[in-house]
């Protein structure tokens, strides 16, 4: 009799265990987890590819204004811009795009960047290369503009869904563009 009871209890436990593990596997199969982005996802709906050429090569950085803390590429939907502190506001309010908080390569003769443009179609009225001159993000100086160099009149860039637009921007530390604010 006791044996029968124990067997029954054991069977109940087994049934509970199998049910638990089955439910567990069912639930886990619902989640896919993180994965590195697919290459085409990195492109996004629109992609802006750029090359920065520093006139005078590596040595030209000797003429860079103040300290060189970071270099970033940034495009703006509106132009002219508010003061340099307002650049951040433009970013926060989704009215600008940047190459990332991480700096682009510094003290080089050229570099490249990519910016995924999510809200297409879009027209960036002003696209520039900014140099951060202190640890404060406010301290930004424009060192290059997408324009018919050495004329600094900005050229708007339009990016449509699925488009990849390539641009080249020239930076001459001895002949810097006017600040846009």
């Amino acid at each position: 009799m006791l044996r029968t009871q124990n067997q029954s209890t054991f069977m109940n436990h087994r049934i509970t265990s199998y049910t638990f593990i089955f439910l567990l596997l069912l639930l886990i199969s619902c989640g896919e987890g993180l994965a590195p982005p697919e290459p085409d996802l990195k492109v996004g709906p629109g992609l802006l590819r750029g090359t920065i050429i520093y006139v005078g090569g590596v040595k030209s950085w000797e003429n860079a204004p103040d300290s060189v803390v970071a270099i970033r590429a940034a495009g703006f939907l509106t132009y002219p811009l508010p003061d340099s502190a307002g650049i951040i506001n433009e970013l926060l309010n989704d009215r600008a795009v940047i190459s990332g908080f991480t700096s682009l390569p510094m003290f080089v003769d050229s570099s490249t960047f990519e910016i995924s443009i999510k809200n297409t179609p879009t027209t960036l009225k002003y696209f520039a290369i900014a140099q951060q001159t202190s640890i404060d993000l406010n301290d930004q100086t424009i060192i290059g503009v997408y324009s018919n160099f050495p004329d600094f009149t900005p050229i708007p860039i339009t990016i449509k869904s699925g488009d990849t637009v390539s641009i080249v921007i020239t930076v001459d530390f001895r002949n810097r563009p006017p600040q846009p604010f």
Partner: peptide, 18 residues
């Protein structure tokens, strides 16, 4: 995410750990 302080900051999924 907008300022790019942390790249792909918005990458988040439910947690299933066994």
């Amino acid at each position: 995410a907008a300022l790019g302080f942390i790249a792909d900051a918005d990458a988040r999924v439910p947690i299933h750990v066994c």
